[in-house]
Each structure stands twice: as C-alpha cells, then as structure tokens.
Design a protein around this nucleic acid. Structure first.
Length: 575
RNA sequence: GCGCCCGUAGCUCAGUGGAUAGAGUAGCGCCCUCCGAAGGCGAAGACCGCGGGUUCGAGUCCCGCCGGGCGCGCCA
C-alpha cells in the first residue's frame, strides 16, 4: 500500500533544506485536529538554518508540493505545511488492501525471521495462580503474538518457579503435616496449606527454616526421596496451571524452569571464579557490584546452595547457546528491576556481549483494597484473588447478560467464555503496563465503554450487517470494483485512516513492548466504526454505494478480529 | 538513608518537544415504527503535584522539592 509519508518526503525534499528524506519523514506529524489535514510538516526548526521566517518556508514548500493524485490539498497554516489526502483514492486503497490480505493484514516481515525468545507467566509451582500472575501471562502472550506478527521466529518459555528453598519448606511441611489423600484431592490448595502452616509454625520454631534449607540442599544434590516429592508437587501443580492456560488460550514451547538449570550452574560458578569476579562475604559467594551502584549479587549461599541470579545466568547462557537468539525478552514484574540490572551487569563482566540483547520488560504491581488501605497480595497471608475465580465470574456475568438480551443463534456457553475471558484480558492490556493498579471486581466486570466486550460487540455488529447483506443476495466476499467516492464522508474517512495505520501500530507496539498501544488503537477503530454505523445507512438500494460501504464494513470487521487476535482475544460473530 | 518507578477531569486512564491537553466512567439531558441500545449524540467537568531551568515552543527534556509505590545478600 502507498506510504504517504514517503510521498510527502519526496515532494518536500530539496538540497537547499539540508534534510535527508528520512529526516523529513521523521519530522512529519499527524495533526491533532483532522481539520488541519492528515499529515503535517512543521517548519519552525528550519527557520534558523535557512534564516527565514518559518511561515514563509511553509508557504514555499506548500506551493512547490502542490496537489496530486494522493493529495487533494496542500496548504500552509501557522508555519505548518498541511497535507489533505485525496479521500476517495485513499479509502479505496485501504479497503482493497485489507480485503485482499484478510487475516494477513497487520502482519509484516519486519523481523526477517530472526529468533526471539519471550519468557513469561513463570508462576511458582505449588502456589495458586492469582490475579497478580495475570500480567506476565497476558502481556507475554500478546508480545509473543506481536513479535510473531511482525515476522520474528518466536519461542515461548514458561520459566517455572520450580526450585529454591521454598521447596525445602514444602517438603518439610508435607512430611510433618501432610497426607497423600489431601494432596490428590486438591493439590494446590493442600500445598498452599502446608506452605502457610510452615510459616506460622516457623514463627514459633525458627529451626524449621534451617531444616527447610537443609532439605533444599539435599534436593539440589539429587537425593531420591526429596526428588520424588518435588516431582509430585511439580506435576500436580502444572496440571492445575494448565487449566487456567486453557481458559486463556495460552500455550508454551518450553516449560524449562529454574530446576532445569540446577545442574548447569557449577560451570558458571567456576567461570566467575576463574574470571576473578567472585569473592567471599560472610560465608557466601558474591560478585561485588558496588562500583556500579548495584550492591552485591549473591551467587551461592553460605550453605553452598544456589540463588535466583545464579540460575538466571545459567538460563541466559543456555538459551544463547541453544537458540542463538537475536533478542531474549523477560516479562517480569518491576519489583525485580534490581535483580535484572545485577544479572545483566554480571553477564557483562563475564564478557558475554550479547547481554545487551536481553531485555527486561517490567510491569507494575497489582494490589488489593483491604478496607481502607491498599496492600500487596500475599499468598502466605491468604490475601489473594484467584485468577480462575475472576475468569469464571466474568464468564458467568456474560452468560447472564446474554440470557437477558435473549441472543439468538449462539452457543451461550462458548460465546460467554470468549467474551468474559476476553473482557479480563482486554482490561489487563488496556493500560500502560508499567502502572500499578488496584484490583477491582467492578472494573473487570464492567462491559461498557472502552472494554473488550465493546470491541467484540462492534465486531459482532459488523458481522451482523454482512449477514444481512448476504441474506439479501449480496456476495460480500466478492463485492467487485469499489466506487470509493461513496467513502468520502467524515466518519467513513476517519475509520479508513485508523485501519490504514494498523500495520505501523503493530510494529510500534512490538518495538516498545507495549500491547496497550494495539488495545488503544482497537478502541479508536471500534468507536469510529460505531460512529460510521450510526451516521450512515449501509444497506441502501443503490448497489454501488451499498457495495462500497459493505467493503468498508468488511475491512473493519477483519481488522478488529486481527487486532483482537494479537491480544489473544476471540472475535465472536454474534454475542 | 540510597536507588528505580508513578503523579493529567470526581474516578480509571491516553497524550512520538509542536497547533485549542483527549477518551472512558460517574452524574445531567437526548436518541430504538430505522442495518444489534454491550450502542450513538449533547452539555458539564483540568492551577497537567509544586518551584526553577533549557527551547522559537514543555504535560513531554534537565535540576530541586512534595506525595505514593517498589526494591536494597543467605526468598524468588
């Protein structure tokens, strides 16, 4: 499809300006107000080098650029050169392109098949999947889809928290107070019970902590008795997690978690020693990062067992050697910013220059309102909202609404899942990921305004119009040559422009690791479509007009479905 | 104490150094004999936390405060 910025750069380019075409492209803006045109080139900056008033520069450029097939009007206002796209030409191009590419619209080969790893979700085994886990899971999944869409070869890794002292605690607690029957019935609940009880009892009997650490040392040493229990906990937990992943429609290519790297660490501890980076401190082995203002990174504890950073170093090198990634993305909470800085610094000091290709994508904290104050979620203290409960409640509410509305011709069971779960995912991907938020039932269960159901509703509405046209004998898959002159109204044109920008929006979202950019754009498209739908009658008698408008409806539906897909949300035909 | 992050309308949030700071939501007023009202339209609502600075131009960049969050070796 035509790139209007290219055309503008071509027109504006002049040796005398002292700017390359790419520099000109970068300067081009999209005016806040449509009345100011579709693209604008500000001339303020040129005033100094050309020693001429910016208004005069703009006037000269506008006169030189003139009108053309692509631009109906070029004018200068307040030192901006404003370009007005030729509406009919434009809408025709956009609609044809979308309807030609279908589900491929929005995808590109920008990534040239390079290898990208996305690590996300990564829950701790034996702890319930709560609403705090939704962020990494859903953001990571969207990033996977975005990178896949822009042409990268993506591998999804669920770096399970399946190792560490916590398993020493779990094993100790299970042996003291647990039973096989209890565990078989409700694994996570039972394990959580042991874990919570451990912490309660440890307050009175601190020696339990030592016992737990010793148990983990035995586990790490491969003692069969500990290993067997650990494997049991892991398998049972994974089964429960998979239930949630199934609901969310999320899969992984690898579940290689922390335990996977347990036998790969000695090599790096030795390497750190050989490179003179390791030093002893109070019985533990650390890398001193004080010179970089990053404190100390602990590599082994005084009892010799491993730590988080150690495992992450092993994991990074393993991935580099095994996948030879171009980029490795870690979707992990911002609470771990320091950890990632330390870890990257250690890798750098070890001489792994590809450390710069490892990107920590942080996100803000989800907390709970507890009466008057707001608190972090705590599994230990039982202050949690389970993700599965949130999803089920959203689905139930959707089903209730559908029954009230008496929607015909749909499987309520299936569609209420698509809409209810879509609402939760959409909500999660609506805001800038770095922001903290307080979980609110009212908010996740609100289906009005800028929400998933609103966008899905818009899609269903577009689908409905197309069905109606088909019922009247129109072949919506073959509308023939479109007379885009019927798509020149403000609402049709605004909609076409938003659709046109989708491919660049997808690339931007991937580059910035920010799915909400797509979510926001999707809301804009839905609003714009609904306005168009209300402003104009689509199924008119005149065939040329009707077909042109139907082509725009079809393009809108396709684009909405594609973007929802990038976020991991379904696009039902009816709801 | 030190480090990182956040602060925009009552609430939840957009806002690539550029034109008159935008949505949604709540409250108020309209619109279903017309393609799906989970919708559309209108009015109202903002010392962009405060104070300096850089710039032709700052919500956006820099410095200092204030408020909130998170993190700071034997958890992950």
């Amino acid at each position: 499809m035509v790139d209007f910025k290219d055309i503008i750069a071509e027109k504006i380019y002049d040796d005398a300006l002292g700017l390359s075409k790419d520099e000109i492209k970068d300067m081009i803006e999209i005016p806040a107000d449509e009345k100011m045109g579709d693209y604008a080139f500000p001339c303020f900056r040129l005033a100094k080098s050309l020693r001429k008033a910016p208004q005069l520069i703009a006037a000269d450029i506008a006169a030189k650029a003139g009108d053309s097939e692509a631009f109906a009007k070029v004018e200068n206002v307040n030192a901006y050169v404003n370009f007005f796209i030729n509406r009919a030409y434009f809408a025709g191009e956009v609609v044809d392109e979308v309807n030609k590419l279908g589900s491929g619209y929005g995808r590109s080969d920008y990534g040239q098949g390079r290898k990208v790893i996305v690590e996300y979700s990564s829950p701790n085994i034996a702890k319930p999947f709560h609403i705090g886990h939704i962020r990494s899971t859903v953001i990571g999944n969207a990033l996977y889809k975005l990178y896949d869409a822009v042409g990268y070869d993506v591998t999804r890794i669920n770096h399970l928290g399946d190792y560490g002292t916590q398993f020493g605690k779990m094993i100790v607690a299970y042996r003291k107070w647990g039973s096989e029957e209890e565990l078989a019935k409700e694994p996570i609940k039972a394990l959580l019970g042991y874990y919570t009880r451990f912490h309660e009892e440890a307050k009175e009997h601190p020696e339990l902590e030592d016992e737990a650490r010793e148990t983990f040392v035995r586990l790490e040493a491969g003692e069969p008795a500990e290993l067997e229990l650990w494997e049991k906990f892991r398998t049972l937990s994974l089964e429960e997690f998979n239930r949630v992943y199934d609901m969310l429609g999320i899969t992984f290519d690898s579940y290689a978690g922390e335990s996977f790297y347990s036998d790969k660490m000695p090599r790096f501890i030795q390497e750190l020693k050989d490179k003179g980076l390791l030093e002893e401190s109070q019985g533990a082995q650390i890398v001193d990062l004080e010179p970089y203002g990053l404190g100390a990174a602990m590599i082994t504890k005084s009892d010799g067992s491993s730590l988080y950073v150690t495992r992450d170093i092993a994991a990074a090198v393993y991935r580099k050697e095994h996948y030879d990634f171009y980029k490795c993305i870690y979707v992990v909470a911002s609470q771990q910013n320091l950890h990632f800085k330390q870890w990257k610094k250690v890798l750098q000091l070890m001489g792994y220059e590809w450390e710069k290709d490892c990107v920590h994508v942080p996100f803000g904290l989800v907390s709970l309102s507890d009466g008057d104050d707001i608190k972090m979620m705590s599994t230990r203290e039982g202050r949690v909202v389970f993700l599965e409960d949130v999803l089920n409640t959203a689905v139930a509410k959707t089903a209730e609404i559908m029954r009230e509305k008496d929607v015909q011709g749909v499987d309520i069971d299936e569609v209420s899942r698509e809409v209810g779960i879509g609402a939760v995912i959409f909500q999660e991907l609506s805001n800038n990921k770095i922001k903290d938020y307080v979980f609110s039932w009212d908010k996740v269960l609100n289906f009005d305004g800028e929400t998933g159901p609103y966008v899905q509703y818009t899609h269903a509405r577009a689908s409905s119009v197309l069905r109606k046209a088909e019922a009247a004998g129109v072949d919506v898959n073959n509308l023939g040559e479109i007379d885009a002159g019927y798509l020149g109204s403000d609402s049709a044109y605004t909609l076409a422009k938003l659709i046109y920008r989708v491919p660049e929006v997808v690339v931007e979202a991937a580059e910035k690791y920010e799915p909400s950019i797509v979510t926001r754009h999707l809301v804009d498209i839905a609003q714009s479509f609904n306005k168009f739908y209300h402003d104009e009658h689509i199924l008119v008698d005149d065939e040329a007009e009707r077909n042109a408008k139907l082509a725009l409806v079809k393009a809108s539906k396709t684009v909405i479905a594609n973007c929802l897909g990038l976020l991991g949300i379904a696009a039902p035909e009816r709801m």
